[in-house]
Computed example of a mutant assay.
Amino acid sequence: MKNHISSWRNFCKDWNALTFYQRFESGVAFSLTFLVMLVVSVALFRLFVGVIGGLVFDALNPLDHEIFQQVFGEIMTLLIALEFNHTLQYVVTREQSVIQTKVVLLIAMLALARKFIVLDLGKTSAEVLLALAVATLVLGVTYWLVRERDDRLLEIQRSNSELENR
């Protein structure tokens, strides 16, 4: 929390130095952050009321497979929204000028994991399962390639830094 406050203070301090487009970009990211925060709050409240109400009034059997899938699907949706919101914070506070590709890939993989959790295998065709498997594989390979590239760039920077220090 302390880190977010200092980032926000630095952002406010640097506001005058930003270009028009940087201000626009930060404003859009801030608006999206606020909207996602509202959506997460409402979804969390509805999830809380639904689960607690269902358990208290014995209308919700957590051992029922469909109920289990539904509740954990809603929890995964909230986690995806929180991760997305966390990513937007970097843009708002100008710690990163654009949303990083690796983060977008990870959020997409979380969304696929959520899809697999709520998937009803009895009602899902083989084609859909194949498509989801291919999408998962492609996202995983893409993430690996991006990470490898970033790791190589970091290694080059370290090597150059060590050479400069000699």
Results as ranks from 00 to 15, higher is better:
Val128Arg: 05
Tyr143Phe: 10
Leu112Glu: 05
Leu154Trp: 11
Ser26Ala: 13
Arg46Trp: 08
Phe45Trp: 06
Ala135Arg: 02
Leu32Trp: 06
Val36His: 09
Leu121Gln: 06
Gln22Glu: 14
Arg147Gln: 14
Ile99Glu: 07
Phe34Leu: 14
Phe11Asp: 00
Thr33Arg: 08
Asn165Pro: 02
Arg149Leu: 14
Tyr21Ala: 01
Ala59Lys: 10
Glu162Tyr: 01
Lys2Ser: 12
Lys13Met: 10
Arg23Leu: 06
Leu78Tyr: 07
Arg94Tyr: 03
Leu153Pro: 00
Val91His: 02
Val91Gln: 09
Gly27Arg: 03
Arg114Gly: 11
Met1Tyr: 02
Gly140Phe: 01
Trp15Leu: 15
Leu119Pro: 02
Leu106Tyr: 12
Phe84Cys: 13
Leu105Ile: 15
Arg46Asp: 12
Leu55Val: 13
Gln70Asp: 11
Phe57Glu: 15
Ser161Asn: 12
Phe30Arg: 05
Ala113Ser: 13
Leu47Ile: 08
Met76Phe: 15
Val49Leu: 14
Ser41Trp: 04
Gly54Trp: 12
Leu82Tyr: 07
Gly73Pro: 04
Leu44Glu: 03
Gly73Leu: 05
Arg166Lys: 02
Pro62Lys: 05
Leu105Asp: 01
Asn61Leu: 08
Arg114Ala: 10
Asn165Met: 03
Lys123Leu: 06
Phe45Ser: 12
Gly50Thr: 13
Ile75Arg: 04
Lys102Met: 11
Thr101Ser: 03
